[in-house]
Simulated assay, not measured.
Amino acid sequence: MLKTQIEEGKGGRVILMDSITKVTPEDAGAIVVSASHGGASSGEFALEVPLKAVFFNDAGVGKDNAGIVSLDMLQEKGVAAGTIAHTSGRIGDANDMWENGEISYVNAGARALGLEPGAKLRTALTELISR
């Protein structure tokens, strides 16, 4: 299962992980691109470590917004978060999300960092950490 730091700049570092269950205290302050769905259980894992931001797969959003519910959970704790469209990146494959992902949803914290739906994830995060 993939977990690797992919980019680093003045504004932080980006770590790819196929599952948010792989987040550890060493990831504190990083931007994590997790190929997990953006549901409540994923949000709980993401809250275990103080991250700068975290991205998930929207998993098609689902019933009662189940695939993106973590965005509100994370916003309540001051964590920037977003998802990529399930049609642009494979669930469970962080590298595919990094290479092909298009941002589908963001919380207010992510929007404050300049991250917007419709943007290519890789481009947006590379620009963010270069500041």
Rank of each mutant, 00 (worst) to 15 (best):
G78H: 01
V69C: 08
T24L: 09
G118Y: 04
L121K: 10
A112Y: 05
A85P: 00
A66F: 05
K10A: 13
A59I: 10
V14Q: 00
I103M: 07
S70A: 15
I6G: 08
K120D: 12
A112Q: 15
A81W: 05
G82C: 06
S41Y: 11
Q75T: 05
E116C: 00
M97F: 04
F56S: 06
E48N: 12
D27H: 06
S88E: 01
H37M: 09
G89F: 05
A28R: 15
A124W: 06
T4S: 14
V14S: 05
G101N: 14
Q5Y: 01
I6L: 14
A108N: 11
M73T: 09
I103Y: 02
E7Y: 14
H86K: 13
I68D: 01
S41L: 06
G60T: 07
R122N: 04
E116W: 07
D72A: 13
I6Y: 07
G118H: 14
G38A: 13
I15D: 03
E26H: 08
V69W: 05
S104W: 15
V69R: 11
S88I: 03
S42C: 12
E102I: 10
S19Y: 03
A81I: 02
R122W: 03
F56L: 08
Y105N: 05
M17P: 04
A59V: 07
V14A: 05
G43P: 09
E99N: 06
V69H: 10
N57W: 09
G62Y: 06
A46Q: 10
A28L: 14
S41M: 07
S88Y: 00
A53D: 09
K3T: 13
L74V: 08
V54N: 08
Q75W: 08
D72M: 12
G67F: 03
D72F: 11
V23S: 09
N57G: 08
A28N: 09
V79C: 03
S42Y: 07
V79L: 01
D18T: 14
L128W: 04
S41N: 07
V14D: 00
L115G: 00
D72W: 09
M73G: 11
M1D: 14
A40G: 06
L51G: 09
G60H: 11
S41G: 00
K22Y: 11
V79N: 00
L47I: 01
T87A: 15
E99H: 00
K63M: 03
R13N: 04
D18H: 10
R90Y: 04
I68L: 01
T21E: 02
G43A: 13
N65P: 04
A35D: 00
S19M: 07
A124D: 05
P50D: 01
D27W: 04
A46F: 12
F45S: 07
G101E: 06
G9Q: 07
D58V: 13
W98L: 15
L16K: 08
T4M: 07
A112N: 13
S70V: 13
V33P: 09
G78C: 02
L121D: 01
S19L: 01
I20N: 02
E76R: 02
V106A: 12
R111Q: 15
G43F: 08
L51M: 03
V79P: 02
R90G: 11
G29L: 07
A85H: 06
S36N: 12
A80Y: 12
E116I: 10
A80N: 12
L115Y: 02
